[in-house]
Amino acid sequence: MIRVHGLTKTYGAFTAVDDVSFEARPGRVTGFLGPNGAGKTTTMRVMVGLTTATSGEVTIGGHHYRDIPNPGRHVGVLLDASAQHAGRTGREILSIGAATMGLPSSRVDEMLALVSLDEREAKRRLRNYSLGMKQRLGIAHALLGDPSVLILDEPANGLDPAGIRWMRGLLKGYADRGGTVLLSSHLLNEVELIADEMVLIGRGRIVAQGTKESLLAGADHQSTHVTSLDNELLAKVLAERGVAVTAAGQGLRVEAPPVEIGRAAAEHAVVLTDLRAAEGGLEDLFLSLTSDTQRDVLEGSPS
């Protein structure tokens, strides 16, 4: 269990993290989602004591990270897979971690096998690793001490689709065994695939949190794809209700939840052949919630 309470971190006049509170619970994978520079990494650095908070606090399993003896045995951390001596081999990096935590060297072999780094790759120096291999090594390092809490900053960054699927399986299995996982990402798709719960952060502030379903339900804005036997009529009646309708492929894209369109169709006896929430509903939500924090102004994005 990770509990972040009223966390604020300022650098001079700049507020990197602004009164952030959330929890990551055991048995769940919590995704920490936000655009670049939103404060995800700073929050995670405070969690593990690398950065001191200006105010507020973080407890992990009820303790401050600094108070946990041999913390590698309780909390697995991956903040930056490249932050290792480039001249060490993958195996040596894990061996140093294992030696610090007081683990047998057999644990290193187990972890290498778990993340599918073979013997030859383990003997290569980190500078010769691809980003995906570094991420696998970093995850192996985080899991070395068999921790009950995992804190991973952008762990899927650099992984190919198969790698992301592998990580999803790994982290789901870990959470199912009672572990707590907090992982950050700036890519909604990654988090959508892996996380059970989401915490959305923009410009240092939490803008939304909850499960994917609860976030979508609570969204005041939603799009629907609809196809009917009489699109023209349907478009007309929807437009009369003041709903934005645009033609999209064979059907229509309507800026309203599916239930409203179904109701309109029923009232006017329009036969629907396809009705579904538009893909990217969560993406729209993400962009709208963090729109004032985006660096790039997106054309046509809902505000």
Partner: peptide, 21 residues
């Protein structure tokens, strides 16, 4: 090495058997 998930309150880490490096 078993995971150190405490029995007392869910999500609490029991540090009883932990010794500093």
């Amino acid at each position: 090495m078993s995971a150190t998930i405490a029995s007392a309150e869910p999500g609490t880490i029991d540090l009883g058997s932990s010794t500093p490096v």
